[in-house]
Design a protein around this nucleic acid. Structure first.
Lengths: 243, 243
DNA sequence: TTGGCTAAGTGTATTGCGTACACCGTTATT
DNA sequence: AATAACGGTGTACGCAATACACTTAGCCAA
């Protein structure tokens, strides 16, 4: 027991809420691992683990994500820090939560390390979760619901090339509201942040849709010039203003 | 040295970015303390300190704030967690930062505990700060700039009763942009979240303005019914869409 | 008391954007 | 050849954002 301190110290962990989008269902998914060790052995949980003493916290999140699921090169942002004294039966554990967005093409995932199993779950059909992971996940959901409307993070959930209908489905899924096709296309195309490609969908049993790519460089250029991304929930005239 | 662990553990602290608004200058202010102990003795810093083992992190933030500045009953939200390995010369210290908004009427502050001095600084005239507190403060600034536009947190910076011009000055200060008086009044009054009082400014050397109060209960009621607060930067027609 | 200063308070015309809404075209399948 | 599935397109309407200037109220000082 070599590590001794004058005052007691908490352990610090990271946990990752990994979101993925499945446009077949269509459904927002979360990546969970099945714990191989106590506590909560066999229970589903968010991927995560202890922060090493010499690594930045975000690095720990990326490392644990790769160790437990094989994922690399993900979009990752800090979500919230959970530190209630009783959230972990092993003692005082403060967890810095991150959320990640990954494109389905990257979805080759592999159970490893502390995990005996890794699996995508629909956010609407979640198993019981270890610790306070349900709270963390819910916090992550709120975050991306709030954030997709005014930052173009949704593209992180799509493959590099996607049809407009795929983007629309994504927004409809996250915002839980139907959008008008013509208005959606008009608005997103007018923004000028999509690059129209000369490629089309393959292997579909109907007319193939044109593919687009998110033009990140142009977007950042426009932001500098005062552009303000905004793609809100479309409400009907009735619900818009009551009374 | 009674506390021994199998693995090394970081220390965990909290830091608070306390914002106040001065409508005389008008200026956005931050409350800083002058450190009484090493490291960074005599240097200005954000109020904060170590998290006790049996208290929630947010409780620690509130406790440290009271201990060092005498402030209680503040609006407080978690900001971000800073955990780079070298941010503190004493070793690995991970800090959970919060930001607080307080009304000027509450501004009776008192140096205490670890602080030899407490002082309001304009965010535009900051002294050198201890640790990475400059980064934390900057992060807090960005947060409230982003947040005032779509959540009515600005009222936390005003006294309970305020004139419309005070609210407008607040928004102009935080957003760093001039707003049109008539449009501002029209918009905020139409929202219906302000209660018109039968009281007026006192001791002003010109016509006294009517005072208003933020009707929080009504606002929350309206949010439930789908109301969406939004008070954006007003841009001119020219800058709005280029080309 | 009067004149001057400061800030409060108020209305309208224009325009751009969000919204609602329906049909034809293309491709693959049987 | 017919069907099924989705792709792709235009317009009219109404509201809300914007631009813009003068009068009134109250205090103060000469």
């Amino acid at each position: 027991m070599p590590y001794t301190y004058e005052y007691p110290r908490p352990s610090v962990t990271v946990d990752c809420v990994v979101f993925g989008f499945d446009d077949k269902e269509p459904d927002l998914k979360v990546l969970l691992i099945q714990r191989a060790a106590e506590p909560f052995k066999d229970c589903w949980a968010l991927p995560g683990g202890f922060v090493d003493m010499d690594e930045p916290v975000e690095t720990a999140a990326l490392r644990e994500l790769e160790e437990e699921t094989g994922l690399t090169d993900v979009f990752l942002e800090q979500l919230y820090t959970f530190g209630n004294p009783n959230r972990d039966p092993r003692g005082r554990v403060i967890s810095v939560a991150y959320y990640a967005l990954i494109a389905p093409a990257d979805k080759q995932i592999a159970a490893a390390s502390d995990a005996q199993n890794v699996h995508w779950f629909s956010v609407n059909q979640l198993p019981p979760l270890a610790f306070d992971h349900h709270l963390i996940l819910e916090t992550g959901l709120q975050r991306i619901r709030g954030k997709v409307s005014y930052q173009p993070i949704g593209f992180e959930l799509l493959p590099e090339k996607f049809p407009l209908s795929g983007l629309q489905k994504l927004y409809e899924t996250i915002l839980e509201t139907p959008l008008d096709k013509r208005n959606f296309r008009k608005k997103i195309l007018n923004m000028g942040i999509l690059k129209e490609l000369d490629e089309f969908q393959q292997d579909v049993s109907h007319r193939a849709a044109r593919l687009y790519r998110f033009d990140k460089a142009k977007y950042e250029q426009m932001v500098k010039e005062g552009f303000y991304f905004e793609l809100k929930e479309q409400r009907t005239r009735e619900t818009k203003r009551k009374k």
